[in-house]
Write a protein that binds this DNA or RNA. Structure first.
Lengths: 337, 337
DNA sequence: TTGAAAGCGCTAACAC
DNA sequence: GTGTTAGCGCTTTCAA
């Protein structure tokens, strides 16, 4: 058994209470006593039992982060920043993967609160408002991403629509009139795929262009292979396009790869624009034009919001968003004449 | 205050003990009693207090995973798998980043054990044997990666030397005689950069070739920009080479990008081989030949080893390794004549 | 400034 | 099969 406060007190020749005071840096301890206690702590190798402290304080200083998949660049980058932000606030992060499944997400939600007052940051894919009912009363939750409008919960989201508008607008400005879309109807990204499509259509409409469904490739997921497959299908269908808007960078890199594999030059023959501004985008060949939706800012805001929610469970809920901006690189060019 | 076992017992009209039996699925509970208790649990909205349970059981079912950086493909892929393996064992994972700094790693080590008997998986960069002394007695630790030979601790590592030999051997078999190396002396990867260089030299020696230090590029880190910079320096130095072995895939993708940006064709002019087999490698242009060091296997072994260590603190320590194999793709070809 | 002691919610040894 | 109860290690109220 590892030593307890009691053992330390015995060795130091003081009371239980005094040792606790020293550990918690309470002010009213004489310096000599403090030194004696610290010496005793070192001597017996005392380390506090955090489970006992948690029980006593009703507070764990652990938050939970539930993402669909850690093994995707935009999510791992986000997780990395969340961990940093949380640590800065004295919190540690328990990471979970929902694998885009309803049961997975639900398990996360249901387990929330098991560590007393700790909070949950969850990036929902398949959660619906009804799922939240039983959870909300006993847990601090912040929803990430979009996909759910429910003013009983704090939400911290990207500006998907505005970002997609900016991407499309950029291509339109370059003279493109037939812009393919890769990444629609992704079952694992229901919110984002709808909103980014909406942004695309908005931009088209603003330029008086009709929406052409034959230029839209649906995909299973948003990985490279899906991007490659999507654009291949589009090419085979004979649909004519001079530019592609892929709903995330990973898709876009797959698209760019496949186009070049099929002998189309990027951007000379086809322009490609992505979404997320992952680290890899700038070192792709060619470097990828993309939308930076502000993942870093999102992480900061998310942790801040959760911390405030834990501190004030009854404060009004909020919807906060990070800022999106276009990052021009070399995968986009004027439409070929 | 949220309801406790006591509240449930009151509502169900049974004792404290019986409720606990139901929750922990003890066998000796009559079905009707169980139903009544479950109804009461649902009614009052009872959820177990895990801090209390941890305190009572002296066990948290939380393990800690400390990696240099989550935002690197090989680490995030590894973390993702560790989380899955741990979940399968009924454990959850607290993720931390050491940022390759001695203080960061040390903080992780020092904090270990604060959650009672939980264990720590740590990928050490700058830890030395002496750092472990004070920790070992009260914590279950498994060291990941290489970088430390210390038989007081379980270690689960990649086969860096063998992997690097395979990569170099592959290039030698293709007729290359001037093989550049990118990634040496990386301060953040002290173990891996030494071992992979060792593998490279072994393969060279086996073919009777001298080691040429002017073909070795040292780098600050193992990100794309470092790969790009490294190969640029080498080109500027006028050193002649027909192939590049980069110490990881991210470096290799940076190398491949830079070579092509400078008008050298890959693999027609220069072959490139990487290390890690990250997801991106197969969709790069050209798809990257690389070494798959078995990250997935590593995750499985690591969790298994930690679980066994937690169960048997006094069992003899072990050194386990995953298997490395070469994955041939299109970034390597016979030496140009 | 320090000591004594209650009690956080739970599990399980012990009774019946 | 169910009830009673000690005690896990800590923080903190109350007293001295």
């Amino acid at each position: 058994m590892s030593p307890t406060l009691h053992d330390v007190a015995l060795v130091a020749g003081v009371s239980y209470r005094t040792v606790s005071n020293v550990i918690n840096e309470h002010p009213h301890v004489r310096a000599t006593t403090r030194d004696r206690v610290n010496a005793a702590i070192a001597l017996v190798g005392y380390r506090p039992n955090y489970a006992a402290r948690m029980l006593r304080l009703g507070r764990t200083d652990i938050i939970r982060l539930a993402l669909p998949e850690l093994d995707q660049p935009h999510f791992s980058g986000f997780a990395s920043r969340v961990i940093e932000e949380a640590n800065a606030q004295g919190l540690v992060v328990l990471t979970e993967q929902t694998h885009d499944s309803r049961p997975g997400e639900f398990a996360s939600l249901a387990a929330t609160g098991r560590l007393a007052t700790d909070g949950l940051l969850i990036y929902p894919a398949l959660i619906e408002p009804g799922d939240l009912n039983r959870i909300l009363e006993h847990a601090s939750i912040v929803l990430l991403g979009q996909n759910l409008v429910d003013d009983r919960v704090d939400q911290v989201t990207l500006r998907d629509v505005e970002g997609a508008e900016a991407a499309t607008e950029h291509l339109l400005m370059l003279g493109h009139r037939h812009i393919a879309v890769i990444g629609a109807d992704a079952p694992l990204h229901p919110g984002a795929s709808v909103l980014r499509l909406e942004g695309y259509r908005n931009a088209l409409a603003r330029h008086g262009l009709d929406f052409d469904p034959t230029l839209v490739a649906s995909v299973d997921s948003w990985r490279r292979r899906d991007g490659a497959e999507g654009v291949r299908r589009l090419l085979e269908s004979g649909a004519g396009f001079s530019a592609v808007f892929a709903f995330n960078d990973t898709l876009a890199l797959g698209v760019s790869y496949e186009l070049q594999a099929q002998g189309r030059k990027v951007p000379a023959d086809v322009s490609v624009v992505g979404f997320d501004n992952i680290d890899d985008a700038q070192f792709a060949s060619p470097p990828l034009t993309t939308v930076d939706p502000g993942w870093g800012e999102l992480a900061r805001i998310a942790v801040e919001t959760l911390v405030e929610r834990m501190a004030h469970p009854d404060a009004p809920t909020r919807l906060l968003q990070s800022d999106a901006r276009l990052v021009e690189r070399e995968s986009t060019a004027r439409v070929p004449v």
